[in-house]
Design a protein around this nucleic acid. Structure first.
Length: 868
DNA sequence: TGATTCACG
DNA sequence: ACGTACGTGAATCAA
């Protein structure tokens, strides 16, 4: 039988071959792309020659460079590699990932070793292997079913030289294994292999041909036959340098025992032409590849239907399905209500690639409860299912949507079809295209089963497994309990305040009409702009695409000279408060007088939560009038509110992550940080810092966390760009480590196209190399902000998990009801107050230990306003 | 549906 | 020369 064939490619080596073989190319943005281009040509050529679809590419993992500076810096630059080539490595990897190419990388192991291990493994599994590399180092791997293929590009043409053992023998006169010894004697400066001084190719070949190995040659070094032509001292050289030779051999030997294992079928390379990869091909202007990608994409479009499934109505059949699930202690599982069936609950089970069931929950409650006691199960959007059937809390159920969110938090959906597309290379019909609700459940269970290994592996590969397992997953039940608990609202008070607002709105409306001389819709920016800037001829013309800007900052400047503007601003405020909060919130108050909002865990790019239906994270506080809404949120009878918030987490994290001594010291002394900054930046003694200076310094501090830019700061402070620039420069002179840290983040982003938090959460930055200044600058600011904002998010999430756990350990009835990014609001049974306060504050403060301690301020109150 | 505005951290 | 502060969600208007 013909052996199946797999191509294993030495990524770095082929890239550098291509780099030197293809004339220098640049795209419009100045990104060097010649190596990538050459790599792709070699890749496609090899695939064509070898006629296989099974491919994988191995890369060295760059030595870790610690960005957080909590550890000494270690630079793992490949020496002798020109900058233009180095830059192309991450770009090529990005493209290959988008082309769905399996990348073999493992920390602590070189690509050579990975290739060697995998090649031998595949040969043992009965495959035909072709190892593609740019240099001869890998010839030692050549074997009965392992061919070493060395492409050489010159004058635009790529020729491929192939070596089975007999070809190695023919060209160098030694076997592949002996090739190691040959290299050990000769040495190789580019690989840092010393070799034996004075030994060149001729001498080394003679010795190895005669004695087969350096050990054997050493044993005979003093024999009379040890007579290398024209090298009378060769024996002596070897004798004297034997240790060096042995070391060289060790260095030259490829390790074929790397703890890696490759699944042949995972290497099937298809769907390389997709929208994401095509975008890069276009961006990098590889015109000659356009048509290849277009054609490939059209043939790759495929729709796969569901495996046959069973609609189980017979309790006996249900029992059988569950019995098998129990035996394997694992399954894809999904629960859903069917509105076309009176909201009846169904359980969907996927036991294998071909076994899929739909069972009414009423037929299998007992079996399901029993099943969840043992084993691990996989699903999507788990929190929603807890709301359907709380008993699911008892099982170990993994939420793959959550995993997919960590792998790419920029997506807008993590439903079954998204996961199938991204992790199974499978195009499934979207929810809207489905005929009935059953299909959604079946697909979800099926995808949960199919995508789990890939998603888990990627979480491990990206070092986000712990974040997933210890933070995101444990948070799911916590959020569920928060949503279930809800928060009590005094609806009467809410509505009566709304009435009050409405009266004011009506009054203001009349006044505005009178002043404008006509009636119009004040809520319409377009009409408002027309009245103000055309009819009434106020200064300060255009700003937006659709017409005049009527945003607060514009109107505030006009307020003093034009009374109507003040009225309009007032109208705006009242009308916002009324529609969003008075009317908006009251619509969500349920039978139990509580609002059960929902917390979204897979929305933000930075790892924060978000709050919807209604948004309980933007209840007013900054103005007296808005604050009233906080007082309508109240604890239930016998309870109080306990509110705890982190004091300036983000700035404290900035100090810790940058390790700036001056900032750390200031925080350790618990100084007023904005005042200290003002004193530093404006060269004023601490006691002489005016409120004005402090305000400015505070804006600078904010700016730093947001990813400072002179333009932004000048806008925020209404000062000139030049002044803003000076502020920033002086800030960085005062806190040099902060500058180093922020620059480091941007540099990291440029190299890897993502940044990460202290706990490993990633924020992709696909536009960090954009040619568009605005997009690129935006990515740079995000690179500075995301690690800080994200680390703060990680920290409070960890705290929530701990608090929830401790509350249940101590049998407390108190619960977390809200999270507002750096603040937790708890409804606390009065008797539990002291216990809960201790738990809460200490959990929040001790989540992580950093150079600057985290400080939590906790307050008790009979409504949210009082407690904050 | 997208743009604008504004509430929060 | 480019022309924005970071992260959200909801209400509203104008297509």
């Amino acid at each position: 039988m013909k052996r199946e064939k797999i191509l294993l490619i030495d990524g770095h080596s082929i890239l550098s071959r291509a780099f030197y073989g293809v004339p220098f190319l640049n795209n419009k943005e100045g990104i060097p792309t010649n190596g990538i281009y050459g790599f792709l040509n070699i890749l496609f050529k090899e695939i064509e020659i070898e006629e296989t679809e099974y491919v994988a590419v191995a890369f060295d993992v760059p030595k870790p460079t610690f960005r957080h500076k909590l550890f000494p810096e270690y630079k793992g630059t490949r020496k002798g590699m020109p900058e233009e080539l180095k830059e192309q490595v991450p770009l090529l990897q990005e493209l290959l990932r988008k082309m769905h190419m399996p990348l073999l990388m493992m920390e602590g192991f070189e690509a050579d070793d990975i290739l060697g291990t995998v090649a031998k493994q595949m040969q043992a599994e009965g495959k035909e292997v072709v190892v593609v590399s740019g240099d001869r180092d890998l010839l030692q791997l050549s074997d009965e079913h392992i061919k070493i293929s060395i492409p050489k590009t010159s004058k635009g043409e790529t020729k491929v030289y192939s070596y089975y053992p007999k070809d190695v023998e023919e060209e160098w006169g030694v076997s592949p294994i002996e090739f190691i010894d040959l290299k050990a004697l000769m040495g190789d400066s580019s690989d840092n292999i010393p070799g034996v001084p004075g030994m060149g190719e001729k001498t080394a070949t003679w010795i190895i041909q005669k004695y087969k190995s350096i050990e054997e040659a050493y044993a005979h070094a003093e024999d009379s036959e040890f007579k290398v032509p024209r090298k009378p001292n060769a024996g002596k050289d070897l004798k004297e340098n034997f240790e060096l030779a042995k070391l060289s051999k060790e260095l030259a030997t490829i390790n074929i025992h790397v703890p890696i294992s490759l699944n042949f079928s995972d290497c099937k390379w298809e769907n390389y032409a997709n929208s994401e990869s095509k975008e890069l091909i276009r961006k990098w202007e590889f015109r000659s590849l356009y048509s290849r990608f277009e054609e490939a994409e059209s043939t790759a479009e495929k729709k796969l239907s569901l495996p046959a499934w069973k609609d189980v109505e017979d309790p006996y059949l249900a029992k059988i399905a569950f019995k098998d699930a129990k035996k394997q202690k694992s399954a894809g599982i999904f629960m859903q209500a069917d509105p076309s069936d009176g909201g009846k609950l169904y359980v969907y089970l996927c036991l294998s690639d071909t076994r899929l069931y739909r069972i009414p929950l009423s037929l299998c409650e007992e079996e399901l409860t029993e099943l969840l006691k043992e084993g691990e199960y996989f699903t999507l959007q788990l929190k929603d299912q807890y709301h359907l059937w709380e008993e699911l809390l008892e099982g170990e159920i993994h939420d793959l949507s959550l995993g997919a969110y960590l792998l790419n938090p920029l997506k807008d959906s993590y439903a079954y079809d998204d996961l199938a597309r991204d992790y199974m290379d499978l195009v499934l019909p979207g929810k809207k295209e489905l005929q009935n609700t059953a299909e959604e459940g079946l697909y979800s269970a099926f995808v949960s089963w199919q995508a789990k290994n890939r998603i888990f592996q990627e979480l491990k590969d990206t070092e986000q497994w712990e974040l997933y397992r210890d933070v995101e997953e444990p948070l799911v039940p916590v959020l569920y309990r928060m949503e279930k608990a809800g928060i009590l609202v005094d609806k009467e008070a809410l509505l009566s305040y709304g009435e009050e607002l409405k009266k004011n709105i009506a009054m203001l409306q009349e006044e505005i009409y009178a002043m404008a001389g006509e009636e119009f819709n004040i809520n319409s920016p377009q009409q408002l702009g027309g009245i103000l800037f055309e009819k009434m001829q106020l200064p300060g013309g255009k700003k937006t695409k659709t017409g005049y800007s009527t945003a607060v900052d514009v109107l505030e400047k006009l307020q003093e000279d034009y009374p109507i503007v003040g009225k309009i601003l007032e109208y705006r405020t009242y009308s916002k408060l009324n529609s969003t909060y008075a009317e908006g919130l009251s619509n969500y108050v349920g039978e139990d007088q509580r609002i059960h909002g929902s917390f979204q865990q897979m929305v933000t790019a930075t790892g924060r939560l978000s709050s919807t239906e209604p948004n309980l994270q933007n209840i007013p506080i900054r103005t007296e009038m808005g604050r009233v809404f906080r007082s309508v949120f109240i604890p239930k009878e016998g309870s109080v509110f306990l509110d705890a918030d982190y004091s300036q987490v983000e700035l404290r994290l900035l100090a810790s992550l940058s390790k700036d001594e001056k900032l750390i010291e200031a925080y350790r002394k618990d100084a007023d940080i904005h005042r200290v900054t003002a004193s530093e930046v404006f060269h004023v003694p601490l006691e002489e810092v005016t409120p004005e200076l402090r305000r400015n310094a505070k804006a600078v501090n904010f700016g730093i966390v947001y990813g400072i830019s002179a333009f932004g700061l000048s806008e925020g402070l209404s000062i000139s760009r030049q002044e803003a620039k000076e502020y920033i420069e002086r800030y960085f002179t005062s806190y040099p480590k902060v500058k180093e840290y922020l620059d480091g983040e941007v540099a990291f982003a440029r190299e890897h196209s993502f940044v990460k938090t202290l706990f490993g959460r990633r924020r992709p930055l696909p536009e960090i190399h954009a040619s568009n200044f605005m997009r690129r600058s935006f990515s740079e600011r995000v690179a500075m902000n995301a690690p800080i904002q994200g680390t703060a998010a990680d920290i409070i999430k960890k705290a929530m998990v701990i608090v929830d756990q401790k509350l249940s350990e101590k049998n407390c009835q108190s619960r977390i009801v809200l999270q507002i990014h750096d603040e937790l609001l708890l409804e606390v049974v009065k008797e539990e107050l002291e216990t809960v306060k201790d738990i809460l504050v200490s959990a929040m403060e001790h989540v992580v230990s950093l150079p600057v301690p985290l400080i939590v301020e906790a307050t008790v109150g009979n409504n949210w306003d009082e407690a904050h």
